[in-house]
Design a protein around this nucleic acid. Structure first.
Length: 284
DNA sequence: CTTACGGCCTGGGTGC
DNA sequence: TGCACCCAGGCCGTAA
């Protein structure tokens, strides 16, 4: 499941091969996950890649058009759960569920594969700030400790929901929220406003540490994530709670539990991450 | 406004 | 061999 570290890994891979490349042709399979498929077919051929960057879990491919189309535009890609981007020789075997092909001027092909098609793709004209990205919160790796504390300490929502909320912090998903909360020894249902200063600082450090380590290991391959060269990541080997139901906590040996928080499976250690007393349903 | 929750999209994996 | 069911992330509508 692509979250910040996986998207960052894909972006770095694309940065090594895409800038300067010209897109010759566009071929599309199913297009129900593309905002305006006709726009891709119309504006991309002849365009050149200026750069690739990440914004939260979004990939942004910056392009300059050919003479006819708009001069500058961006291709916005969200990988959803099962989206994969691969840059490969044009004659390489085509994986099932591959729905987007961009022929490149070096004989290779940019391909987008997405089993579930929960991903999104959209072409946006102009240089202006990209509307879908404007509502997103701070990048957890760019936010200062002070900013992080301010985002959380005034909120009554559960900390797990806050970390998952892309308008608060952009880029965290289920894996990295659970791993961060375990490292910081904070239970997922604790309310943001209930966290003490020392806990907030611990969480801030945990989030940054986990994300940076995950990037270093090129992400977590839990379902079918691979990077733009088709390689799996290795951070799944360092998971301490995620999908470890019933296994022993690496810190205290207690059995890892699972509960639903913010509509998501949440793995935690019942001994290291103590549940709050105050927000249990039905208790007075 | 903030928060919580259910439903929807899709298809692979699981269990009967 | 079939098939109902679960689950995943983001988003949206609704309700308190």
């Amino acid at each position: 499941m692509p979250e910040l570290p996986e998207v960052e890994t894909v972006v770095r891979g694309l940065q090594a091969v895409l800038p300067g490349r010209r897109i010759h042709d566009v071929r599309l399979g199913k297009t129900d996950f593309i905002e305006d498929a006709a726009a891709l077919e119309r504006d991309l051929p002849g365009s050149r890649v200026r750069g690739v960057r990440r914004h939260g879990k979004f990939l942004v491919v910056e392009l300059e058009g050919s003479n006819s189309g708009p001069p500058r535009f961006s291709l916005l890609i969200h990988l959803g759960m099962t989206g994969q981007i691969l840059v490969c020789p044009a004659d390489a075997r085509i994986a099932a569920h591959t729905h987007v092909f961009f022929g490149l001027d070096d004989g290779r092909e940019f391909r987008y594969t997405d089993i579930r098609r929960f991903g999104k793709m959209r072409l946006i004209a102009g240089d202006s700030p990209l509307a879908p990205l404007e509502k997103l919160g701070l990048d957890p790796l760019e936010a200062s400790e002070k900013e992080f504390v301010a985002l959380v300490c005034s909120r009554r929502a559960r900390i797990k929901a806050l970390l998952l909320d892309q308008t608060v912090l952009r880029g965290m998903g289920n894996i990295y929220t659970d791993e961060s909360l375990w490292r910081a020894r904070i239970h997922p249902t604790r309310l943001g406003a209930s966290l003490k200063e020392v806990e907030l600082r611990r969480l801030y450090r945990a989030v940054r540490g986990i994300l940076n380590e995950a990037i270093r290991l090129r992400g977590s391959s839990v379902s079918d994530y691979v990077d733009s060269e088709g390689r799996t990541g290795e951070f799944q080997l360092r998971h301490r709670v995620y999908q470890r139901l019933g296994e022993k906590c690496f810190r205290c040996g207690a059995q890892i539990r699972r509960t639903i928080v913010a509509g998501r499976s949440s793995y935690f250690c019942p001994r290291c991450q103590l549940a709050p007393r105050t927000n249990r349903k039905g208790s007075r």
